[in-house]
Computed example of a mutant assay.
Amino acid sequence: MSDYKYTNLAEIPSIKDKAAEWFHSKWGVPKEAYLECMDAFLNGETDYGWYLCLDNNKIIAGMGVIENDFHDRKDLTPNVCAVYTEEKYRCQGIAGKLLNMVVEDCRQKGISPVYLITDHTSFYERYGWEFLCMVQGDGEPEMTRMYIHR
């Protein structure tokens, strides 16, 4: 694990297209939507960033911060989104380290609290996240758990 590189997209903007394609392959959200958010970050239009873990030059985990992660509580912002770790790299603390990196980066920019939605019930608590409420996902019939990191 010590060989992994934890970074944000501003440190390696040349991998923007690769990162957008990687996130698209995991979540099915159009690549163009990721590129739009990443460009806004890289162009200084938003402080909400994109964070990656690399094994050599291969993306093995990542997440972003956006205004709203497709739910009805538009007042709960910003949201950590697109959290994903490749299966063979799970259970090594990679996502936790990225989550901590995101929270700290946001805090340094004066952004606090930060929110996320998930159907996981115990993972995020390990990293200081607290259950806040249930929210309605856009176009989803069921409610989803909303967490907060203060």
Rank of each mutant, 00 (worst) to 15 (best):
G44R: 07
C81V: 07
V80E: 04
M63W: 12
D119E: 14
C37R: 15
I60S: 06
M101V: 14
M63I: 11
Y115I: 04
F23Y: 13
C37D: 14
W27P: 00
R90Q: 08
G110C: 06
E104F: 05
A95S: 14
T85I: 13
E36G: 06
P78L: 00
G96A: 05
L52D: 09
C91V: 12
A82N: 06
C81N: 08
C53Y: 07
S25K: 03
Y34R: 02
E32Y: 05
R73S: 14
H24R: 05
L54V: 14
N100C: 07
E45W: 11
R107H: 04
G28P: 03
P113A: 05
C53D: 11
P30L: 06
E104C: 06
N43T: 09
E87L: 06
L116Y: 00
T118R: 01
G44N: 09
A82S: 14
P78S: 01
G44A: 06
M101N: 15
G49V: 02
V102W: 10
N43F: 09
K74D: 13
A82P: 01
A82I: 01
N43P: 02
L99K: 05
G44I: 05
K88Y: 02
G49H: 04
A19P: 07
M63G: 10
W50V: 13
I117L: 04
D39R: 06
I59Q: 02
D119L: 14
L98N: 06
G62H: 03
A95G: 08
I117P: 04
K26L: 07
F41A: 11
W27E: 03
Y115H: 05
S112N: 12
C81Y: 04
I60A: 05
A40G: 10
L42R: 07
Y89P: 02
K74G: 07
E21W: 08
V102A: 09
C37P: 00
L99N: 07
D47M: 10
E104S: 13
T118L: 01
G28I: 06
P30F: 00
D55I: 11
D47Y: 07
K18M: 15
N56Q: 11
L35E: 15
A20C: 09
P113K: 01
V65P: 01
N68S: 04
Y84F: 14
H24V: 00
K88I: 12
V102Y: 12
V103I: 13
V80H: 02
Q92T: 13
K31T: 14
C53K: 03
Y84T: 03
R90H: 06
C106Q: 07
E36A: 14
E21T: 15
T77V: 08
F23C: 06
